[in-house]
Amino acid sequence: MAKATFVRTKGIWKVFWMRSDLKWHSYEPKAKVNTLKEFLGAVDRDEHSCFFS
């Protein structure tokens, strides 16, 4: 599961993933992105198999 939150003061999106503890954690390979398109690309690539099992 993936989530992006917009930080208006910085104009960036923060990327999170939900671990088995059911808490949201920052997605370290790409913790911040500039656009939603970039976020969707990171989720699609899923370099560390965090979003899809």
Score class of each variant (00 low, 15 high):
residue 30 K to D: 13
residue 36 L to G: 12
residue 4 A to K: 09
residue 7 V to N: 15
residue 11 G to S: 07
residue 37 K to W: 00
residue 35 T to R: 06
residue 24 W to I: 08
residue 29 P to D: 11
residue 6 F to Q: 10
residue 50 C to E: 07
residue 26 S to P: 00
residue 25 H to N: 01
residue 3 K to A: 01
residue 34 N to Y: 11
residue 32 K to N: 13
residue 43 V to H: 08
residue 30 K to P: 00
residue 5 T to M: 11
residue 26 S to K: 06
residue 29 P to H: 10
residue 41 G to F: 03
residue 50 C to Q: 13
residue 3 K to H: 00
residue 45 R to L: 11
residue 28 E to K: 13
residue 34 N to A: 01
residue 47 E to F: 07
residue 22 L to I: 02
residue 21 D to W: 13
residue 27 Y to Q: 09
residue 6 F to D: 08
residue 11 G to C: 13
residue 40 L to S: 11
residue 42 A to W: 01
residue 5 T to D: 12
residue 20 S to P: 02
residue 51 F to P: 04
residue 22 L to K: 15
residue 32 K to V: 15
residue 16 F to V: 01
residue 3 K to W: 00
residue 44 D to S: 15
residue 26 S to D: 06
residue 45 R to W: 02
residue 23 K to N: 09
residue 18 M to L: 10
residue 19 R to P: 07
residue 53 S to C: 10
residue 16 F to P: 00
residue 51 F to T: 01
residue 10 K to C: 00
residue 46 D to Q: 08
residue 17 W to C: 03
residue 41 G to T: 09
residue 34 N to M: 09
residue 7 V to R: 10
residue 25 H to A: 01
residue 39 F to I: 06
residue 6 F to T: 07
residue 2 A to N: 01
residue 40 L to Q: 14
residue 50 C to S: 09
residue 11 G to Y: 10
residue 16 F to M: 07
residue 47 E to M: 04
